[in-house]
């Protein structure tokens, strides 16, 4: 079971997590004359408190997924594959049909969903332990087949739910509960850069890395997510977006300091930007005709 050792109150994902949302509902937005409501909860996001720790970026990523599902009018035909980790309770927050996947297998489960029901919009939402360690084969091959899926990859360099163990993306020198002396390159290898790897695969139509450490980066990340969604809705291929995220609890940092760490330590190692963007046209019949055609390249990489 997950352990919250130090750090702010809320335990990361436990019973309390799934517990009933006793919190007051958000005040129904009233708009007075001369003003407009410019920021409120998207309809697809449940009106309940999350189980996430203070300063955890899952909440931001969840909100942006929900916003895009609403803005792109996809929520009603979406089936999500949730993964294992803190975000296993995705279905408590994002109100779309969801099936729980075994650890790392969300891209395979999502493949099954999309092949079975090609008219649905399908996404998985996975952390770094799930996607880049135990689920490496599944993510690589789903991308390589060009499955019409979107994967939201939250990289916070630790296994959050189980108590902050070393992840495949843990930075060199970073201390975790299973590399207490700091990650050593000779013993534990280097942090894996997933966006760069996924961009190399033939079926990937869009691949980018954003960050959730600043308002500017969050807004940019949402643009990337939109493009990753569109890679699927336009039938171009596999859409992938990596989000550098904070885990203040397991980093033993305050939320503000955690954001600073992303800026100063993570972004230099995990550079932000678009790694692959296929130009394609949804009207290209052969490209989108059947799921069985997956894998066809839509155009040249930029």
């Amino acid at each position: 079971m997950p352990k919250a050792k130090s750090a702010p109150k809320a335990a990361p994902a436990t019973k309390a997590a799934a517990a009933k949302p006793v919190m007051a509902k958000t005040v129904a937005p009233k708009v007075a004359a001369g003003e407009e409501l410019v920021f409120t909860r998207p309809a697809s996001l449940a009106d309940r408190a999350t189980h996430y720790c203070p300063g955890c970026h899952h909440g931001i990523a969840h909100r942006m997924v929900a916003e895009l599902l609403d803005e792109m009018d996809l929520a009603g035909r979406t089936v999500a594959a949730s993964s294992i980790g803190c975000s296993v309770f995705l279905y408590n927050y994002i109100q779309v049909d969801t099936v729980e996947s075994p650890h790392g297998r969300a891209p395979a489960v999502a493949t099954g969903i999309k092949r079975a029901r090609p008219d649905t919009f399908v996404f998985s939402y996975q952390g770094d332990g799930d996607l880049a360690s135990i689920g490496m084969a599944e993510i690589m091959h789903a991308a390589n087949r060009g499955e019409r899926l979107t994967v939201v990859f939250v990289n916070n360099t630790v296994y959050g739910m189980t108590g902050g163990q070393m992840a495949p993306t843990t930075l060199i020198g970073q201390k975790t509960t299973t590399c207490p002396g700091g990650r050593c390159k000779d013993r534990e290898g280097s942090p894996i850069r997933m966006a760069e790897i996924i961009a190399q695969l033939g079926g990937t139509a869009f691949c980018a890395r954003g960050s959730l450490d600043s308002v500017k980066n969050i807004r940019q990340a949402k643009k990337y997510m939109r493009q990753a969604f569109e890679a699927q809705t336009r039938g171009l291929g596999f859409g992938f977006v990596e989000l550098l995220s904070g885990c203040p609890t397991n980093w033993r940092l305050s939320p503000v300091a955690a954001n600073k760490r992303i800026t100063e330590e993570m972004i230099p190692y995990f550079p932000l930007g678009v790694y692959k963007e296929l130009e394609g046209d949804a009207t290209c019949g052969s490209l989108v005709s059947t799921g069985a055609m997956a894998g066809g390249a839509a155009g040249e990489s930029k």
Partner: peptide
Amino acid sequence: NMLLGAGA
């Protein structure tokens, strides 16, 4: 796991 997804 694909079977799981399709079955769901």
